[in-house]
Amino acid sequence: MIFEAKNITKLYHNHRALNDVSLSVPEQAVFGLLGPNGAGKTSLIRIINQITAPDKGEIFISGEKLQPKHIQDIGYLPEERGLYKKMKIGEQALYLAQLKGMSKQDAKAQLKLWFDKFEIGDWWNKKIEELSKGMAQKIQFIITVLHKPKILILDEPFSGFDPINANLIKDEILKLRDEGSTIFLSTHNMKSVEEICDHIALINKSNKVLDGKVSEIKTTFSKNIYDISFEGNMIGFANALWTNFELVDKESFDSTNHRASVKLNDASLNDLLKTLINNDIQIKDVTEIIPTMDDIFIEVVNQNNQNI
C-alpha cells in the first residue's frame, strides 16, 4: 500500500470534520474520494498535504509515517485554485516547482516538455490574467504534476475544461498512473469516476461509509435485474413469469416489439431464460442492469442519512 490512513479524526471548534476514517490505497491506483459537499473530503486532503494535522490517527506513505519530506512526493490541485495574476507564467511555474524542492534547471527542462506537449510553448512570458479560465487550468495542472509526485491529489480536476481538454487531462492522468503515480481524485462528476477510478471511498458526514474496488462495489450493489427485449406480446410474457420472477418495468415499442425489466428472486438467469423459451417468447437481447456510481452514491448517502 502506498498510502494508508489509520483512524483519522479531525476536530474543529465544536465540529467534527473527520471521524475515525481509515483508508488504504494501492500503488498505481486511481482512487476516487467521493462524498457530498461538506462531508470532510477537503479536511482529509489538507491533512495529507500537511496543511493541517489530525487530532487523532496517523498517515503512512509507503509505510513511512507522514513527515515534511513527503511534501515533495505529493502534488496537489485544490478545488479552489488560482495563480498569481500578474506574474509571468514561466516564472511562477518555476517558482512553485522550486518550492516543491525541484532544482531550477530540472524544473525548466520539465516545464519545456509539458509546454511542448500541450503546444503552449509561447505562453512562457504571458501573464495569467491574459489567459482564459481553461488555459489557466492547464497551467495549473502542469504545475501540479511537474515534480513527478508519487501521489497526486486532484480536487475536481475537470471543472472549467471543455470536453476536448477534459479528455486531454483524463488521458494525462491515466498516463501518469501508468508511469507509477497514485492518484486521488475528489469529484462530484460520477461519470469520470466510472471512467477512470478503480478504487473509491465514500465519505458522508465525517464518516467513511463505503470503500473498495469499483467493480466489486458495483457487484455488491447490483439488484439482479435484467433487461429483456423480445418479440411477441406483453401479456404472454407476463403470464410466463412465476413467483420467483418480478416484472419491475416494461415498455412496448410497437405491437410486437417489447422490453421488460425482470428482477430475479431466488432464481438464476438460466431459470428465467428456460421459462421464457418454454413459453415460446422470441428473445432478442438480454442485459444485466448494473447500477451506476451515481445510483450507488445517492443510495448510500440517503440510507446513511436516515440511519443517523
Binding site: 496543511i51 511534501i71 496537489y76 479552489e80 485554485r81 488560482g82 498569481y84 518550492l99 516543491k100 504545475i143
Partner: peptide
Amino acid sequence: IEEKTNRIIEVIISSV
C-alpha cells in the same frame, strides 16, 4: 490578501 483571493494560497501552503 492577493494570495488569498487568487486562491494560490492552498497550492503554496501544500509546499511550505
